[in-house]
Simulated scan of single mutants.
Amino acid sequence: MAITASDVNKLRQQTGAGMMDCKNALVEADGDFEAAVDILRKKGQKVAAKRGENEAAEGLVFAQTSADSKVGVLLTLNCETDFVAKNDTYRNFVQSLVDIAMSNLPATSEELKGLKYDDKLTVEEKITEQVGVIGEKLDLSGYAVVKGDTVVAYNHPGNQLATLVALNKGGETVAEAGRQVAMQVAAMNPIALDKDGVDARTIEREIEVGKELAIQEGKPAEMADKIAQGRLSKFFKENTLLSQEFIRDNKLTVEQFLDSTENGLTVTEFKRFSLS
């Protein structure tokens, strides 16, 4: 298939690799972006781990919790330009959607769109109305609900990134620890709570890449699997929340930090939405 400059730039933005490297990888992968990422990694490229919503355009991301901190909602509304996203009217509209979500706690974005915005329009109809008013495409691209004994929201300045973290205990000390972990999720972008939450396909890919790199480094083929397993363990430590080094004290993992805060304290769920 034909590889366009837009395709190359998209892969470059996603991985941080050079333009020609990205183009060659896409050609070799016949346009398959995931395969192209693997090709870059197997060739030893330093590929940035920009996961999540890396195709999102402009807009705002809001996280909010209930008064009793037992539930939180996370919502992304995209628009086309930064000019609109920074407008107070747009910000107030996004907040109104968050308020409706908090009041009703729909399970999905489709359920949220079907709720009443006012006496005349549903949320979906109101968004369509605002498209005509603002003159830009709007897209409710992300929505999630998180519940727990304590739920903490973190909104990064500028509202381009927000997180929710649920913990298994309550109290002010737990809430403060949760705030630190919510910031950890924002900064470190874990892909799962622990290694058990990493999907089989991701594990298979990491093992395959690990074996290929070991062979390229001149290691005996019979050792490649063991080396790949070692790299997989490192991958889990870097990319699963409870195993990550705690950013406020890298002598501790997040799991150890929580347990030192209160015995048995842990995260039960987290969500992270980002526009970049």
Rank of each mutant, 00 (worst) to 15 (best):
A2L: 09
T4L: 11
S6C: 00
S6W: 03
D7A: 01
V8L: 04
N9A: 10
L11M: 04
R12H: 02
Q14T: 08
A17R: 13
G18R: 09
M19V: 12
N24Y: 05
L26N: 01
A29H: 10
A35P: 03
D38F: 02
D38N: 14
K46T: 12
V47P: 02
A48Q: 12
K50R: 14
K50Q: 06
R51I: 08
N54Y: 14
E58N: 09
E58D: 08
G59Q: 13
G59W: 05
A63C: 06
A63P: 11
T65E: 06
A67T: 10
D68R: 02
S69C: 04
K70I: 00
G72R: 03
T76H: 02
E80D: 09
D82L: 08
D82I: 00
A85D: 04
A85K: 09
K86T: 03
T89H: 06
Y90W: 04
R91F: 04
Q95I: 02
Q95E: 15
L97T: 00
V98D: 11
V98L: 09
I100K: 15
A101G: 00
M102I: 12
S103V: 00
P106E: 10
S109R: 14
S109E: 13
E110Q: 13
E110Y: 08
E111K: 12
L112N: 02
G114A: 15
L115D: 03
L115R: 12
L115G: 08
K116N: 15
D119Q: 15
V123Y: 04
V123W: 01
E129T: 08
E129Y: 10
Q130M: 15
G132T: 06
V133M: 09
L138N: 10
D139R: 07
Y143M: 04
A144C: 10
V146S: 07
T150P: 05
A153W: 05
H156P: 00
Q160F: 08
A162C: 01
L164T: 01
A166C: 07
L167C: 04
G171H: 07
T173L: 08
V174C: 07
R179E: 09
Q180W: 07
Q184F: 05
V185R: 12
N189D: 13
N189I: 09
P190M: 01
D196L: 09
G197S: 10
V198T: 12
A200K: 14
A200V: 14
E204Y: 07
E206H: 02
E212Q: 12
A214R: 01
I215E: 02
I215N: 01
I215C: 01
Q216K: 15
E217L: 05
K219E: 04
A224T: 03
D225C: 00
K226E: 11
I227S: 02
R231M: 06
K234Q: 07
K234G: 03
F235E: 03
F236S: 02
N239T: 06
N239Q: 07
L242E: 05
I247K: 12
I247M: 15
R248I: 11
D249W: 07
D249E: 03
Q256I: 00
Q256V: 04
L258C: 09
E262W: 10
E262L: 08
E262N: 09
T268P: 09
T268V: 05
R272I: 01
S274Y: 01
